[in-house]
Nucleic acid binder design. Structure first.
Lengths: 377, 377
DNA sequence: TTGAAAGCGCTAACAA
DNA sequence: TTGTTAGCGCTTTCAA
């Protein structure tokens, strides 16, 4: 029933190889023949079978997207952008969810390897060494994790943490808590590192609470701890956790930002809808998805694959992989969940709230562009 | 570089067809040979190439998931459940986003047809006739749309609308608005129909506002209209729109539920986080994803495909397709966005707020099971 | 510019 | 129980 290249050949009175050329190397075919073949193909509704094509060319024109948790609102915009970008380049996208499980990640890379030209690993929980090993099986681009020798798309959460801490210190907070993310998260480590440095510079104390699951519940569960820690401000691993904390503090009768200020990370769309609206470090999720796909396909273009006509020669030359690492800017978006702390108005060292840095008073709904900087290649 | 069936055959000293059987018909192979082959395969890290296999068997072991808008929080739980269910059955999932565009839907079905064993069409915007036509190209299961002769997974939003209207009428509301969804949405029509009937039965007036885009902005934009319409209660097409309306009313200084009560549909996780918390008709999104995948794969099992060994005979017999339509229950979850209306406490006809029907006082976080009823086959 | 032929990795008749 | 063979739909040498 499905129409094959042979049907088109028969209908247009040429050999199948001519039909093949019409689609994959049109310039090698007589214009008149070409239009005739194209017309027949159109008529019959012919579409080349990509899988059959892949068998020879070694390119599937598919990519894989491995996601820690599709239901986490951080990811859908990334998935959407990646899928859109891929499709513009005539690639289809497999999406798989790992439930934050490292073993599932590994299995999925294996399972998809033969069906795709590359895989996007988003916020992986695997060890670096395992990721490196898997990258020998199939081209990989990693999002939210830095690995030497592998193409990575990173968001500058370090800068974000710095801005957040400076913002809080500028408001007069000296006792600040950091709600850590899940174990194995690069973002969480980075946040912790940068927040620690910034707190020291601002003369504030930083208490680290965690690790925590990167969910609303993770934040909710820490509300009690936050109160007991006696801090007046909290930077959470992500918005979901910050929102959970908002809930938890509300249940405990702790006023935000009256008694405690809260800052999230990500700027998921939800964060404009809570009461109070959440101050947060916006991460350019969609840009990350687009960029990661571009890097993967770029690599795919550079890197000849196992097709009959490729391989050996290029490998002998010593395939030069593109291993650029891109760091995308983040930006502090100040809303209503942060307010004056106990030291508000007093003199202190360090940057002031109005000082330099990528701050921004929340503007209701305007577009935001994130610039990408190559930090290594 | 990638290891093929031939490498395994060589390593284990058998013919490739024996290796093939070891994987696709193990009972036809001598147990000793089998373990040897399996050991070699394991050693070499062999995985059968599914695309090559599909060329012969006619089954790709892939399915397609076509989604109106991945970033709409209604869909991620559905995607997650569908992907998980598919993977349990050893299927991989292509995900594609159409941006609510009917033409993109059609193109995507064509594009994916050859690479998948079936497609899940989620909340399609295409016409019925086009969907029917496409279903001749590739097996389809449709979610949130009823089509004679096609397997469908529906959520009983009609019942949900009824419950919502009865709830509002029971609270003493007589002037109710319905915020309609996008054009071409089965759910929107169904909601409107059922809400109309229920309102009449309860002696209430129903004003329909719309169509609207199924987004927060769609609701926000209608806030002014809602106020002018002089209604005291609103049922919105979905939670996103309801939340937008909440925002809009807040900006206008209209108290919820003091002056206007608001009910959403879907129970996305966000709806527990707004202030006030949203009363809403919970739809079993994850169950819908799972069920739809099951129906698709069931159909795939019944329906022989274009492999060499299949086709003709079965087609001649007149392939009996599974066209069951499943209707999943919805449930009204009462939270804080609905309250007494101007006629509260007065006598009236119709069901009371405490009357029968699938109501539920919000219980904080307990699991909910949705039962599926076959309404046709 | 086109056709002939080989073969990508695999499965499924058929024979032994 | 295993090997032989043909061929799924397609691309790509090679020759004409």
């Amino acid at each position: 029933m499905p129409v094959t290249i042979r049907d088109v050949a028969r209908a247009s009175g040429v050999h199948i190889s001519t039909v093949s050329r019409t689609f994959s190397a049109p310039h090698l075919v007589n214009p008149e023949t070409r239009v005739r073949v194209l017309a027949c193909a159109e008529d019959l509704g012919y579409r080349p079978n990509r899988a059959a094509r892949a068998l020879i060319t070694g390119r599937t024109h598919n990519i894989g997207l491995i996601i820690a948790d599709i239901a986490n609102p951080f990811f859908p915009p990334l998935i959407k952008a990646a899928e859109s970008q891929a499709r513009h380049r005539d690639y289809h996208v497999f999406v798989a969810d790992t439930n934050e499980d490292a073993a599932a990640e590994e299995e999925l890379v294996h399972a998809l390897a033969k069906q795709v030209d590359g895989v996007l690993l988003c916020s992986p929980r695997m060890s670096n060494s395992l990721i490196e090993q898997l990258s020998r099986e199939v081209p990989l681009v990693v999002v939210n994790r830095q690995l030497a020798g592998l193409p990575c798309v990173l968001m500058d959460v370090g800068q974000g943490a710095r801005s957040a801490i400076e913002h809080l210190a500028g408001l007069g907070h000296r006792e600040i808590a950091l709600l850590g993310g899940p174990r194995g998260s690069w973002t969480s480590r980075e946040l912790r590192r940068a927040a620690g440095v910034a707190a020291r510079a601002a003369g504030a104390d930083l208490t680290v609470l965690g690790p925590n699951p990167p969910t609303e519940h993770g934040g909710l569960a820490q509300a009690e701890q936050v109160r007991r820690a006696g801090v007046t401000a909290v930077l959470a691993y992500n918005d979901l956790m910050a929102i959970g904390l908002l809930e938890g503090l509300d249940a405990l009768g702790v006023a935000v930002p009256g008694e405690v200020s809260v800052v999230g990370v990500d700027d998921i769309s939800l964060s404009r809808l809570t009461r109070p609206k959440l101050t947060t470090v916006a991460t350019p999720t969609a840009a990350a998805g687009r960029t990661a796909v571009d890097m993967l396909l770029q690599q795919d273009t550079d890197l000849p694959r196992t097709g009959r006509a490729s391989g050996a020669a290029a490998v002998a030359v010593g395939v030069r992989r593109t291993t650029a690492q891109v760091m995308l800017q983040t930006e502090l978006v100040i809303r209503d969940s942060t307010g004056p702390g106990p030291y508000a108005g007093r003199e202190r060292s360090g940057a002031t709230a109005a000082g330099p840095g990528p701050h921004r008073r929340a503007d209701p709904g305007g577009p935001r562009v994130a610039a990408g900087d190559v930090v290594a290649s």
